[in-house]
């Protein structure tokens, strides 16, 4: 099980998704498309996302677990859905703020 901390980066082993951890520490069964995520650059296998985790990820969106103790940022989109084990992460609601800079 990989160890996560803010800034660390993971890639899906079954699709093109890549994420960066924004919040969360420790061992975590981080999955994408139903399969464990790996360090970026690791060889991808031939599998495709499992049908239970195939809604896809969107570039620049943040995903959180129910308790919001873990938050990840999608830096490359793909076909799989993110999850901790079998539990899917949900898209974080973002309240739009007016441009201030």
């Amino acid at each position: 099980m990989p160890e996560i901390k803010p800034g660390s980066r993971f890639a899906s082993s079954v699709c093109t998704t890549e994420i960066i951890i924004v919040k969360g520490f420790g061992d975590c069964d981080l999955c994408c498309g139903g399969a464990g995520m790996e360090a970026p650059g690791a060889p991808r296998d031939e599998r495709t996302p499992s049908p239970q985790a195939a809604e896809g990820t969107q570039m620049g969106k943040r995903y959180v677990d129910a308790a919001e103790t873990i938050e990840v940022l999608c830096v490359k989109p793909g076909d799989g859905s993110l999850g901790i084990g079998n539990v899917l992460l949900k898209l974080k609601d973002a309240k739009p703020l007016p441009a201030s800079d």
Binding site: V22, R62, P96, L97, A99, S100
Partner: peptide, 17 residues
């Protein structure tokens, strides 16, 4: 870096323009 990136992630949506 973590201060500035936190500010951006907390206040700007990616590709919102």
């Amino acid at each position: 870096h973590r201060h500035l990136v936190s500010y951006i992630l907390g206040s700007v949506e990616f590709m919102s323009a």
